[in-house]
C-alpha cells in the first residue's frame, strides 16, 4: 500500500507513505538545517493522530508551512488506505 500527495513546487512538499515493518521518516528539506525538528514533529504528530506506526514516510520539502505538510500527509494517508 502506498500513497503520494503534494508537489515539489515552492512552499509545497511531496510526501510518499507506504507500509513498513516499523515507523521510518525521511526528510529532505531546503530549510532542513533550521526546521528539521519542526517538520519531524508535524509528521510524527499526524501519524500518531492517525494511529499509524508501521509506515515509511518520505518528505521532499520545498519550504512548506506546517499546515501544508500536515494536509499533504493526510491526503497521502487517505490515498494509501484506498490503495488496496
Amino acid at each position: 500500500m502506498k500513497g503520494i500527495a503534494g508537489s515539489k513546487e515552492s512552499n509545497d512538499c511531496l510526501i510518499t507513505i507506504e507500509s513498513s515493518v516499523k515507523r521510518k521518516i525521511e526528510i529532505n528539506s531546503i530549510v532542513g538545517v533550521f526546521f528539521y525538528d519542526q517538520i519531524l514533529k508535524v509528521v510524527e504528530d499526524t501519524l500518531d493522530e492517525q494511529g499509524l506506526h508501521n509506515v515509511k514516510v518520505i518528505v521532499e520539502d520545498k519550504g512548506a508551512l506546517d499546515y501544508t505538510i500536515k494536509s499533504r500527509l493526510l491526503t497521502a494517508i487517505e490515498r494509501m488506505r484506498e490503495d488496496v
Binding site: D66, S71, R79
Partner: peptide, 13 residues
C-alpha cells in the same frame, strides 16, 4: 481531495 485537505488545514491553523 488534496485541495480540500489543504484548505481545511489552512483555515483551521
Amino acid at each position: 481531495d488534496n485541495a480540500r485537505n489543504l484548505v481545511h488545514n489552512y483555515l483551521t491553523t
